[in-house]
Amino acid sequence: MTSTTLDPGAPTAGERDLTYSEAVREAIGQAMEADDRVFMLGEDIGVYGGAFGVSGDLFHRFGGERIRDTPISELGIVGAAVGAALAGMRPIVEIQFSDFTNQAMDQIVNQAAKIHYMLGGAASVPMVLRAPLGSGTGAAAQHSQSLEAWFAHVPGLKVVMPATPADAKGLLLSAIDDPNPVIFLEHKLLYRTSGPVPVEPLRVPLGRTAVHRRGADLTVVATGVMVSRALDAAAVLTDEGVDVSVLDPRTLTPLDDAPILEDVSRTGRALLVQEAPGHAGFTAEIAARITESPTLYRLLAPVRRLSGLDAPIPYAPQLERASVPQVDDIVDAALTLMKES
């Protein structure tokens, strides 16, 4: 996989290349240095360094009290984070695979998401739940899902899907600052990608769509690992004479739709790309916002979604690849869309 970061919003001074997982780790470390209330809990995040190596040396830097290894108890540890947040801490929970949030759904959906509202605003739950999502590792159906739309459908949860190392760091710092529960979904194929990341703990605000490139012909909106695939596809499409924009909302909740509507109004064509299954997926929300707005009248072709199959993620590598959009699929979909108008 190539690592492509063309985020014009990212600062250029004081940067160096980090991997996505290093960027996440740096954000956690800087937040913990700045604020005693911040601590982390999760399975195998201590000496082991995390199932995907994200917590790394944090255990040695901050000790086992604040980098807290837990038993395999997703419901218990997410609930413990909710309680600690209610009692004034700023917990970060790592769930080893986002699929395992299913074990903790009561605490995420019934408790964390609703406490501030149910209590009439009298208490809040400032916590971050980090979890790797997505396919591409041969781990099959129970370790490869993209469940972001579930969380985005629950009022009270913020949902973040960083696509670059700089966004991973900046958005995680904002998520830790936020007084609400934030579901922070890291794509496991991105962990080893690298890109420029500011040294300073600079925040990337939640709810700000990134415009990775602007083109005249077609707007691609992509999330997670699909952002880099869309950028690779854009390079291929340039050779084919098609000039595309690539936008990444970065946070599904809150959703900054204005730049998307504006760009689609300009190009007249929208290709919405996600790894998750298409049926009732998050890009359907973006499609709806396009068609519910005056942008509808600017469309030169129907809105097109390109999604994962409506099927579990299979094991065999050729089956797994065929289940979610690849660069070639994005290129083909864009060319088809150009022919429709």
């Binding site: 540890i77 609930g79 413990a80 909710v82 605490q107 408790q111």
Partner: peptide, 15 residues
């Protein structure tokens, strides 16, 4: 639902 939350509040006090 409140049992893990109580545990977490106690963790906050201990920390």
């Amino acid at each position: 639902g409140g049992i893990p939350i109580a545990t977490g509040a106690a963790l906050a006090y201990q920390l």
